[in-house]
Amino acid sequence: MTTRPFKALIVDDATTVRMYHRALVEQQGWETVEAENGVEALEKALETHVDVMFVDVNMPVMDGYTFIKTARQSETLGHIPAVMISTEAQLVDQDKAFAAGANHYLIKPAAPDDIATLLKLLEPKELP
């Protein structure tokens, strides 16, 4: 059986937020790849296999909802779990995220324990 480290895609236009999420994800033994907006995220996700996507909502060029909707239409990315991380705490915002195709929703700022728990939960059982 081949093994490789799990890899998370972190999508956020704020450099500091990406660095923070990267630190939390890497603490759990995962590798990371980063993107500043939805378009860059699509490019990165298509060129490198990722196991989970952490996605911000408000970003220039392409927002998080559009990114997840687009990813869900892709054969390669359609099945990859997506966690939307947003400052918007209303139920309607969560509904929009799930309607776009997100699997989980976290409210910013994400707590280290929440990220660790989600990574455990979303760890792939079989590596492609």
Partner: peptide, 11 residues
């Protein structure tokens, strides 16, 4: 707040 501790120290 873990994020603000991180972000502020980084800034």
């Amino acid at each position: 707040d873990a994020y603000l501790q991180f972000a502020t120290s980084h800034a």
